[in-house]
């Protein structure tokens, strides 16, 4: 895994400063969605080979939640944004 992460607020930081909290889940199902949709949302994770979006918390720095786009094969990080920017689209 890449040892340096470019926090949009703090700049290049070692990954030891971050807590990794797993994939960015798909949008929450509607309240009336059937059980399989909820089961998928709550329990099932994709573990893809390739591009993956993950929540990282910059615990040792700005303490902001970030969304990091990482390739699980090459470990290249293509994009890091503050998680609050996801809200703009209304589906985070």
């Amino acid at each position: 895994m890449s040892s340096l992460v470019k926090c949009p607020h703090c700049g290049l930081r070692p990954r030891e400063e971050f807590a990794i909290r797993g994939e960015v889940a798909t949008p929450r199902p509607k309240a009336g969605a059937d059980e399989s949709a909820w089961f998928d949302h709550v329990y099932l994770r994709d573990n893809p080979r390739g591009e993956h979006r993950e929540y990282w918390h910059h615990a040792g720095g700005c303490r902001r939640w970030l969304v990091l786009s990482r390739n699980t094969v090459t470990h290249d990080i293509s994009d890091v944004v503050d998680a609050s920017t996801l809200k703009v689209g209304g589906d985070a």
Partner: peptide
């Protein structure tokens, strides 16, 4: 200035 860690101490 920078908020960071010295060892494990913020």
């Amino acid at each position: 200035s920078a908020m960071t860690q010295i060892g494990q101490i913020g």
